[in-house]
Amino acid sequence: MSANVLYTNLSGYYDLMCADIDYPAQSQGVWRLHQLFGNGGTRHLDLACGTGPHIRHFLDYGYQCQGLDINQPMLDVAEQRCPEATFSLQDMGDFRFEEPFDLITCFLYSIHYSDGLDKLTSCIRRAREALAENGLLCFNAVDKTRINNNLLVSHTNRHEGSEFTFRSGWHYRGEGERQSLRLSIDKTTGGVSESWHDEHAMVALSFAEFEALLSPLFEVHILEHDYERIVPWDGSSGNALFVCIKR
């Protein structure tokens, strides 16, 4: 089953699947980075916005927000959560807006959902075109050379009489520009179980390759993947925050 079908079919459970994500901390951390590195503006675009939980926080910070995603059921939920925002059904590899943004975000490693290196390059170029002068692009990423194929993240939640177990993990075969996100969802209701499994191909880069791609277009800062502190990447951890300033 493809990831798009999986996420569309389970859009009603998406927030449950992401229940362990600290959206307030992530949003506040990027807001802080925007205050430090940004141009002072408040026009915000969230790429691959899903059901809009990050946008909800940026609206509360006083931003004028827009979000895009390729799954309409996700956007339907986002519109209910964030009626003040504007949403559009677009591919982040080829998007266009008429007015420039001061901050463009892409949370939850969604930058890797670009379908290959060409699409990722297009996404980055589109983001630069969509930013105002000194605008900020901020996203998190995983370094393909530091992926542990044996590491899985798992959590269980109950919802409307059913028990859900969610598992996910990165996999990289050791060469090339493709990695995958392996995802499984088990739902048990009254002793009857259903399962969904997916291995979705995603673009794979090292942080050095990310920096080489970004540097001609932005002033690039690579930070530790820590939304509570602003700390330069230590050169060894496999997750990082990229803060990219349009010059």
Results as ranks from 00 to 15, higher is better:
L33C: 06
P83T: 14
V243E: 06
E79K: 15
L213H: 04
G41Y: 07
E84M: 15
N157R: 15
I124F: 12
K119N: 15
E209K: 08
D198Q: 04
L33T: 01
N4F: 11
L59H: 08
G93I: 04
T42H: 15
L214H: 08
T86D: 14
F164A: 00
R125N: 13
Q72K: 14
F107T: 02
Q72D: 14
N4M: 09
D22N: 12
A240H: 04
D76Y: 07
R167W: 06
C138H: 09
I104Q: 04
H155A: 02
D143A: 07
K187Y: 00
F207S: 02
E133K: 14
G174F: 08
L59E: 15
S122C: 13
R167L: 13
G62M: 08
S11H: 07
G190I: 00
Y113I: 05
S114E: 05
C49N: 09
M92C: 11
N4T: 10
Q80F: 04
G176H: 11
L47C: 10
D234K: 07
E163Q: 10
S236D: 12
G52D: 11
H221N: 11
E175P: 01
F207M: 04
H44Y: 15
G41K: 08
D102M: 04
Y7L: 08
H159N: 12
E99S: 14
G93K: 06
